[in-house]
């Protein structure tokens, strides 16, 4: 239980700030594509018996880099990502079915299995989360400038492609961290919902990032508590809590503005 709580908090701390970039840069579908590639990563790591964390990380990186490079002219970005996201998910599920020798609990990878997090997993989660968060902090100013306007960034000597790559690596790390916690299907939710929930209350990007982390931590802990009491699946319960926070936050904001 304590391990589960620590895992949830670790994920939320990095998912909040990264989620802000996903919201600002309209990368929600991009997040989905990367997250769904994780299932393929799981299949491959089981097949070659390497660590799931590594397999998912590599697959997420490959997927994110490929889609960001392929953004061409014939298809809009969301079409391309739609193809990528669903193809990756389908391929992953097919690939897992070939692994007849191993008993694979698919549900655990699709929706997370936070209660089964071991000490080793916990270490990986915190390591990955810290790495992703450090990356974001290090490039923060440049990332903000690129997100605002690529030309403004170029004039200041900031390379937009490089900063995009930084976000991709951070996203891949978070996907690898999150697959144990909320599962491949709900990773994007943990990125977007807390960030979106706190948007009305933030006046600067930094405030939004910190609030989002806070909202994520609250959702994780509340979700854990509720799922323990009601015996519901933990990952989905956490996301449901985040959704409640989103609704309450927006109602509160509308109420405050109306008053």
């Amino acid at each position: 239980m304590v391990r589960a709580a620590l895992a949830g908090v670790g994920l939320a701390c990095v998912a909040g700030p990264l989620g802000c970039f996903v919201v600002w840069r309209r990368m929600a579908y991009f997040g989905d594509a990367t997250a769904h590639a994780a299932i393929l990563g799981v299949a491959l790591s089981l097949a070659f018996s390497v660590s799931i964390f590594l397999g998912v990380l590599v697959m997420a990186l490959v997927m994110a880099s490929a889609t960001s490079m392929l953004s061409g002219r014939l298809y809009a970005m969301d079409t391309l990502l739609g193809v990528a996201a669903h193809a990756a998910l389908a391929l992953g599920l097919v690939a897992v079915s070939f692994l007849s020798g191993v008993r694979v609990d698919l549900m655990a990878y699709l929706f997370g299995d936070i209660l089964a997090v071991g000490l080793g997993d916990l270490a990986m989660i915190w390591l990955g989360a810290t790495a992703a968060l450090s990356l974001l902090c290090w490039r923060w100013g440049s990332l903000l400038t690129v997100t605002l306007n690529a030309d403004l960034a170029a004039a200041r000597g900031i390379n937009a492609r490089w900063e995009q790559q930084v976000l991709i690596v951070a996203l891949a790390l978070v996907v690898a961290v999150a697959i144990k916690v909320v599962g491949a299907l709900l990773i994007t939710a943990m990125l977007i919902i807390p960030a979106a929930a706190v948007r009305p209350f933030a006046r600067t990007p930094e405030a939004m990032a910190v609030f989002a982390a806070g909202a994520g931590v609250f959702s994780a802990l509340a979700g854990l508590g509720v799922s323990f009491r009601l015996d519901t699946p933990t990952g989905p319960t956490m996301v449901a809590c985040a959704a409640v926070v989103f609704v309450v936050a927006n109602l509160a904001f509308m109420g405050r503005r109306g008053a």
Partner: peptide, 10 residues
């Protein structure tokens, strides 16, 4: 330069 409403920026 359009700063969308999605990013809070004072």
């Amino acid at each position: 330069l359009s700063i969308g409403q999605t990013m809070p920026m004072s």
